[in-house]
């Protein structure tokens, strides 16, 4: 079973992720990433199509309708941390449970 000490560690790990996604994400480089850069240099960047969800509320790590960029990316990051957390924790807890033989 997870002990109190474990929970403390899990909380710190979660808090670290939350601070990175909610606060530090604003300072991330917005230059094209490695693949985009290579595609642009070689010439196949044009073959990219718009994402099917490119108009969705959270597209490109911003919340639609929020003008303040720092708040928009921070909130998107927070939503990402929460949703990823719920999906991943449910999945892994289900996989980790058993072994009561």
């Amino acid at each position: 079973m997870s002990t109190k000490k474990d929970f403390k560690f899990y909380l710190i790990f979660l808090a670290a992720a939350l601070v990175l996604a909610a606060v530090f994400s604003f300072y991330a480089s917005s230059s094209p990433d490695g693949l985009e850069k290579v595609a642009g240099e070689i010439g196949f960047l044009d073959s990219a199509k718009d994402h099917a969800n490119s108009d969705s509320a959270l597209a490109d790590y911003g919340v639609a309708g929020i003008e303040n960029e720092r708040f928009s990316v921070g909130l998107a990051g927070t939503i990402g941390v929460v949703t990823t957390g719920v999906v991943a924790v449910v999945l892994f807890m289900a996989l980790g449970r058993k072994k009561q033989k």
């Binding site: 079973m1 997870s2 474990d6 899990y10 790990f13 979660l14 670290a16 992720a17 939350l18 990175l20 996604a21 530090f24 994400s25 300072y27 991330a28 480089s29 917005s30 230059s31 094209p32 990433d33 490695g34 850069k37 790590y61 990316v73 990051g77 990402g80 941390v81 990823t84 957390g85 999906v87 991943a88 924790v89 449910v90 999945l91 892994f92 807890m93 996989l95 980790g96 449970r97 072994k99």
Partner: peptide
């Protein structure tokens, strides 16, 4: 097991967060 399962979930969360943090590598690339 019941100790590594929560850690695996949090690892996914942590990686999601850090993947948002593009760092610059040379001119005009991240």
């Amino acid at each position: 097991d019941d100790k590594s399962a929560p850690l695996a979930g949090l690892t996914a969360v942590f990686i999601f967060a850090v993947q948002m943090l593009n760092f610059p590598v040379g001119a005009g690339t991240s």
